[in-house]
Nucleic acid binder design. Structure first.
Lengths: 163, 163
DNA sequence: CCTAAATATTTTATGTTTGTAATATTCGGT
DNA sequence: ACCGAATATTACAAACATAAAATATTTAGG
């Protein structure tokens, strides 16, 4: 980095850092607001929690099943946490654990037929709720924000992996 | 809304709704990623949780103190939840509950001097962490995203308040 | 080849955060 | 004085993180 760039960055450091802090607070608040709204509707209409729905959605995209660790990484949730969620979904017969022949340390978690049909019913409502909540945001605009957020996630993940 | 606009929206409904769904998933993932990163650092360097820090930060901006209900609304967190967080912070002598003469139902929660100094130490580190995580996003760009998110929160809040 | 250490996967244990529901107390208006 | 609304707490269940333990696999050394 050049001396000029360094100086320019230092002179801008104050306002930019404040703006970034504000952005982070909005990010947190908006995801909380949407989460609260979805959680309430999911509970009222389908008797399911948001994390449980998240798991169903993730499994639905992976018909061949996933291990517990893969699930926990995908959902950005701790390993021990997934156990409890899968336990509850399994007791509802929405998912099942299979022991793969190759590696007896792990389990493959899959949707049951009941889980699939349950998921597709919920997913339909879910998509329309999101469409309604984000209706002010157009497709092109969504794309721009998505790109920014992707860069952000990449950075946060790297920081996390290197403590 | 005009007939033409309605038709245009219907014809675009599919891709826009998919984009909005993607945006929501990114939103959730990025706030989770940042949260995980911050939580880890806060625990390691200051022995405090993220929600506890959130409470300290909110109280720091309101020197005159806040009631439990005001706190729960500001933080978008349930009423019963705030009780537990304040209990823990109070047991660490970082905050205290004052009974106002005017209304014996409520408590005014304030930072103690110890809470203030603790907070300012943590806040400094926090701001620099955020600045580092969001470094790719400029001040003007942050402002644009903030505006979009604000509209989004407004809508989600309205939906929530009218069940 | 065989055993021990290192590694990987999951569960269990403990504590915090979260929401919902139920409860007690207090305030304000009628 | 009474009734509905507001305020805070408590109880309970789910979600979450971390750490430790249990089990299975892989690898390294003899």
């Amino acid at each position: 980095m050049s001396v000029a760039n360094r100086a320019r960055e230092r002179s801008l450091a104050r306002p930019a850092s404040k703006q970034r802090l504000r952005l982070w607070l909005r990010l947190l608040r908006s995801s909380r607001a949407i989460e609260a709204c979805l959680r309430e509707r999911l509970r009222a209409k389908f008797t399911i929690t948001l994390p449980q729905f998240d798991v169903l959605a993730t499994l639905a995209r992976n018909a061949e099943g996933m291990t517990m660790t893969e699930l926990s990484r995908r959902l950005m949730v701790s390993n021990g946490n997934v156990t409890g969620i899968i336990d509850r979904l399994a007791s509802e017969k929405l998912v099942l654990r299979q022991a793969p022949a190759s590696d007896r340390r792990s389990f493959i978690v899959r949707l049951t037929p009941r889980g699939m049909s349950q998921f597709s019913a919920i997913a339909k409502a879910h998509e329309s709720w999101i469409d309604e909540l984000l209706t002010e945001i157009g497709a092109d605009e969504a794309e721009k924000i998505i790109e920014r957020l992707d860069g952000l996630v990449r950075r946060a993940r790297n920081e996390e992996a290197r403590p």
